[in-house]
Simulated scan of single mutants.
Amino acid sequence: MTEKTLPAFYQKPRPIHAEQDANLALAETANYLFAASSNSVPLVAAEFTLACKHFPILFADGDKPLPVALLGLRSEENLFVDVEGKWQASYVPAYVRRYPFIFMENADKSEYTLCIDEAAPGLVGDGERRLFNDGKPTELLDNALAFCRDYQGHHAFTSEFVEALAKAELLVDNRADVSLATGQKLSLAGFKVIDEAKFNQLPSEEFLRWRERGWLHLVYCHFISMSNWAGLIDLTAEQGKS
């Protein structure tokens, strides 16, 4: 995997090895400063119910649109991470919680290996929250493996949902032009939203199929999440004053 294709946050991901990482541990006090310059992070479908209460859910433009939680109106600004690295919302997206662990696939995409970003600021040479004890994975590492496996498992369903949106031509380009009370103007582009009018015109048979697949709920969560734009604008204005 080249540097250009590395997922957001990850700088030096590599497989975890019991011998090499015998003394590796996570810092006692974790923070989210590693996410402070990311104005969006990927979402899987299972998160929509909680994420829609806090962030606009958009679809990043590209060959394969990707659902994301919008975290800021500027390209390198996350409004939900304060100067101390604390997350300023009751829900933290799974992509963020997964760090510094990640599954990486081999060349023929037949296997996934649990990896860790050795450049992560939360890694220490020794500590209480170790990855291994006497060469055996600790509960922390077992939980990380289970979390990454579960996260990866949600990708297939999420991809199927997004492919259905694209096939039905429901995703449309969008642009947000925001004027703050200070007079400053911000513009955000490069994302898509679901066209509500087109969605409401789905044939009855197709609508029922979407209900059976569990996709209707995801569409409605997306629509609900649009109400969070106002909150982002307010947060942007507040941080501009500080």
Score class of each variant (00 low, 15 high):
T2E: 06
E3P: 00
P7S: 06
P7W: 02
Y10N: 05
K12L: 10
K12S: 10
P13C: 08
P13N: 12
R14F: 10
P15T: 04
I16D: 01
A18G: 06
E19L: 01
Q20E: 13
D21N: 01
D21K: 00
L24G: 03
L26F: 02
A27C: 10
E28R: 11
T29H: 11
F34Y: 12
S37R: 14
S38T: 00
S38H: 13
S40A: 15
V44L: 01
A46D: 14
F48G: 04
A51L: 07
C52A: 15
F55S: 10
P56T: 07
I57A: 09
I57R: 04
L58R: 02
L58M: 09
A60H: 11
D63F: 01
L66G: 04
L66F: 06
L70G: 08
L70W: 07
L70E: 05
S75I: 03
E77F: 09
N78P: 04
L79Q: 02
F80M: 11
F80G: 09
V81Y: 06
V83M: 09
V83I: 09
E84D: 15
G85I: 04
Q88A: 12
Q88D: 10
A89V: 06
S90T: 05
P93T: 04
P93I: 05
Y95M: 11
R98P: 03
R98G: 11
Y99I: 10
Y99K: 07
Y99V: 02
I102C: 08
F103E: 12
M104T: 06
A107E: 14
A107P: 01
K109T: 05
Y112C: 10
Y112F: 15
L114W: 00
C115N: 05
E118F: 07
E118M: 14
V124C: 12
V124W: 08
G125F: 02
R129S: 09
R129T: 07
R130T: 03
L131I: 03
F132Q: 02
K136L: 06
K136M: 04
K136I: 02
P137L: 02
L140I: 11
L141I: 08
N143R: 14
A146V: 08
A146T: 12
F147W: 03
C148I: 00
R149G: 03
Q152F: 10
Q152S: 09
H154T: 05
H154G: 00
H155W: 12
H155A: 13
A156I: 15
F161Q: 01
E163N: 11
L165F: 00
K167R: 13
E169M: 01
E169Y: 00
L170A: 01
V172F: 05
A176I: 13
S179L: 12
S179Y: 04
L180V: 12
L180H: 12
L180A: 10
G183W: 02
Q184R: 15
A189G: 11
F191W: 10
V193Q: 07
D195Q: 02
E196D: 09
K198L: 04
Q201G: 08
Q201N: 13
L202H: 01
S204M: 12
E206M: 04
W210D: 01
R213E: 02
G214E: 07
G214L: 05
G214D: 06
W215Y: 15
W215T: 01
L216P: 06
H217M: 15
L218G: 03
L218S: 03
H222C: 08
I224H: 05
G231H: 10
T236W: 14
A237T: 15
E238R: 15
E238P: 04
E238Y: 12
K241M: 15
S242D: 13
